[in-house]
Design a protein around this nucleic acid. Sequence first.
DNA 1: TATGAGCGA
Length: 301
Amino acid sequence: MSAAAQKTSWADDIDDLDGQLPQNEEFVDDNGVRTIIEYTVNEDGKKVKITRKIKRTLQKSVVDHAVAERQKWAKFGLEKGHPPGPDRATTTVGENVALKITAGNKQQDHEQNAEDSTKLKLKAGGAGKVSCRLCKGDHFTAKCPHKNVLGGLDAGGMGETDDLGQEPAPAGPSAVGGPSGATGTKYVPPSMRAGAGRGAGESMRNPGGVGGRGGADDLPTLRVTNISEDTGENDLRELFGVFGRVARVYVGRDRETGAGKGFAFVSFEDRSVAQKAMEKVNGRGYDNLILSVQWSQPRTS
DNA sequence: TATGAGCGA
């Protein structure tokens, strides 16, 4: 192993056959620009000098723990005893490639403009006051305590019936012909028109309904605790999906870091499925942890 | 260790 005294790149071993080529050079200047000079022979048998300059942007690196640990390992094999980090003679380090995802393919400044105008609009148009459309209360319509009663009425006819007793005018059905016939009346989707029974365009909403006071949003939900912090929604869907349709999965996370907090909620369409899943999964091992599955308490507003 | 987010006016 005489090569040990003067180490060369594996690629240079080929060139060494004629032994005429100068040693490759490499240095980094004060601006952090790495310059690599390579000498090689091209297809025509001519000697070629290749100079590459690579600017590496310094960045606060966020490295996976496992990777960070691995960098401290002592080298072994042919690299045994050498200092940490890649040796340029034997290792090619590529530049970091950053994938930047933007909305659409607009130019950056266009996006900026759009953003600004949106902000301005928001600033200018922000009326502020919240008033329930159903009961005029000081809350959002969706939060109205009388939603179930008043909301039902609202579904029957669009728009509120003011005290004048005016009917909303049966303009909806008459507008079927097209926009030419209806002047100034709002578009009424077919599903909302009078006489629109169940049809092809039936609502996606589960018609069976889970017996209960709330309505659509009180699905049978399980609280799963003692999950590892890197368990995601998909993992849980996979885990619970075998028992039946999973309606929703929520993983409790730290708002700042996004790391899991060790619990999750899994909602099912059928209570019996949820019950079964709870029995089967509770106490089961997952990711070296023993899962605990219970019925969830209703969320507090 | 542990009981959920956000949208809208």
